[in-house]
Structure formats: structure tokens, C-alpha cells
Amino acid sequence: MRIDRRKFLQIAGLSGIGLGLSAADGLFKGKALASGAHSLPSSGTRLAFVIDVNKIEGEDGYRRIIEACHKIHNVPNIPNTKHEVKWIWTDSYEHSFPDQPNEFLPEKIKEKPFLLLCNHCDKPPCVRVCPTKATFKNPDGIVVQDPHRCIGCRFCMAACPYGSRSFNWVDPRNYLDMKNINPDFPTRTMGVVEKCTLCPERLARGLEPACAEASNGAIVFGNLADPESEVRKILNTHYTLRRKPEIGTQPSIFYVIGGGENAG
């Protein structure tokens, strides 16, 4: 199966972008598309997050989520914003959804921080451009970045429309408290790209991703391919936003904006 998938990626890369813009529709309607290019992986797994913006409780709520992730993954805290490494962070609506500007947005939304992280796109441009297969999509739908393989060309950073990738401009260990790092997880070396991994090491142990766990239910994690999954249930009942859907990357991170009750 994986081989078929690779073949497909090669074809997709060569024949350019814009293969079927209706894939998102297809997913929402819950019907499998005839064209193999857009069907769900046959393993029946496509991992996704639904983030309910309203359920995160204030500044602390955000900080707790971000710290939960950055702490266990030994993400350094680099003060120079140019060299920052971020796996999950916040930004305003205006910056997060620049393609959907709305000057009449409710103040509440306008000021609301949005949690941003790798979208684990179904059609990830970063995977398409990587010259060494250092970044690839695994059968679960996770976009994986293999720091052992990465040559640090940063083509993926140019390709990512969401600014989700960070490069280690400097030695990250200089910005980590090496005595208090998570002993179970490696750091990264200078000169490689990194990003949110979707916590495969936790999934393997049957745990949720760290951010979901720390979110008190604001971040719901699940399998899009399973119609009975919690994420699908929320998507069925709520109006959600995805970042830059028009470019066909098909992100797996969904944002519930208005609050479930009203939308339902």
C-alpha cells in the first residue's frame, strides 16, 4: 500500500498542483471520491485535530497547551524571533486566516488567539518539494519530518503556506535547560528543520497528543476516516474553518469558531 502511495506522490509532484479542489467537499459530505487520488487511505486512518477556540480558558490555557508540547519535545525557547523554533503557537485571526479577511469580525474573534501548528495536510506541499524524502506522509496521515535525513535546504519552509516549519538556525541546546529536559525525547541538531510531530511516541502508548491532553477538551483528536469518531461528530455538527483551504492542501486541523451550540 505504501508503495502505491509513494507512486502517487511522485505523479502528483510531477503533474503539478491543483489535482481536484473538491476533495474537501468530498470529505465533508462523507462520501468517498471515485478518483483514487482523493480517497482516504485504505488503512482507514487520517488523524486530525478539531480545535474549539472558545474552550481554551484565557492566556493560561494557551500557555499550558504550548508548554505541554514544547516541554516534552525539548523545543528550545529562543528569544530572537528570527531564530525561533515553534511547534505550536498562537496568532491573531488576521494573521492566521489572511485569505479570509473580514473587517466586521466580532471583537471577540478579532482579539482571540488561534492555536497554530502543522496542519498535517492531506496534500502537503512540503512533502512534494523535499529532495531527500526527509519529510513524508505516513499512513496515518501524519506529515513526518525525519531530522536524521534532513539536509537543511529549507525548501519545505518555502513551500509550507502556513509557516509551520522551523529551522535550527543555532544550536538548540544553547537555549534549553539541559538539566531539566525531557530525558525520553531527543533534542535536534543545528541545521535541520523540525515541526509538530503529532506525538507518535505518545500515540504508540495509547495516549493523546500532548496538546490535546493539556487542552481540557478544547482540542479534540481523532480519526477523520472513521465516521463514528469524535472529530467527525463535531465536524458534522459545527461550522469549522481551515487555514487557506483554497490552495488545495487539505489541512487536518479544523477550527470551531462560533461555539458548538450556536452553529449546530
Binding site: P183, P186, T187
Partner: peptide, 13 residues
Amino acid sequence: PYCWDCHHFKEGR
């Protein structure tokens, strides 16, 4: 080996 550039070990952990 460059293992320890990323992986780390705390002695006596």
C-alpha cells in the same frame, strides 16, 4: 558518532 548531537543522556538518571 553523532548520535549524541540530538540524543542525550543524563548520567545516573
